[in-house]
Computed example of a mutant assay.
Amino acid sequence: MDKKTILFDFPEGFKADEIRRAKLRGIAPDAELIFQDNNEINQDLIAKVNILIGMPRRSILKYASNLEWLQLLSAGADLYTKPGVLPDGVTLTNATGAYGKSMSEYMICSVLSLLMDFPHYRDNQRQHQWKSSGKSRHVLGTTALVVGLGNIGSEFAKRYKALGGKVIGVKRTPGEKPDYLDELYTADRLDELLPRADVVTLSLPSTGETQHLFGKEKIGLMKPDAVLVNVGRGTAVDTDALSKALYAGKLYGAALDVTDPEPLPAEHPIWDAPNTIITPHISGRWDARENFERVFEIICTNLSRYFDNKTLINIVDLSTGYKKND
Score class of each variant (00 low, 15 high):
M1Y: 08
D2Q: 13
T5C: 09
F8S: 05
K15C: 10
D17Q: 09
D17Y: 07
E18I: 13
R21F: 06
K23L: 09
L24K: 02
R25V: 05
R25P: 00
G26F: 01
D30S: 12
E32Q: 13
D37A: 09
L45C: 09
I46L: 10
A47M: 08
K48V: 12
I51E: 12
G54F: 05
M55C: 03
M55H: 02
M55A: 08
M55Q: 13
R57M: 08
S59M: 11
S59L: 11
K62L: 01
K62C: 04
Y63C: 08
N66H: 13
L67I: 00
W69N: 04
G76E: 06
G89P: 00
V90F: 08
L92D: 08
T93H: 03
N94D: 09
G97T: 05
A98N: 02
A98D: 05
S102V: 09
I108N: 02
V111P: 09
V111T: 11
L112I: 15
L115A: 06
F118L: 15
P119C: 05
D123W: 00
K131T: 10
S132F: 12
G134C: 09
V139M: 15
L140K: 14
L140M: 11
G141Y: 02
T142L: 11
L145W: 04
G148C: 07
G150V: 02
N151I: 03
N151S: 15
I152S: 02
I152D: 05
G164W: 05
G164T: 03
G169M: 07
K171G: 00
R172C: 02
P174E: 12
P174L: 03
L181V: 02
T186K: 04
A187Q: 14
D191A: 14
E192W: 08
R196E: 15
D198G: 10
V199A: 01
V200H: 04
S206P: 00
T210H: 01
H212M: 11
G215R: 04
G220M: 04
G220D: 04
V229K: 09
T235R: 12
T235Y: 04
V237L: 07
D238E: 06
D240S: 14
L242A: 03
A254W: 02
E262Y: 11
P269M: 11
D272E: 14
D272L: 14
P274T: 09
N275H: 09
I282A: 13
S283C: 15
A288P: 00
E290G: 01
E293N: 13
E293F: 11
V295T: 06
K310E: 15
L312Q: 07
N314R: 08
V316C: 06
T320F: 05
K323V: 15
N325W: 10
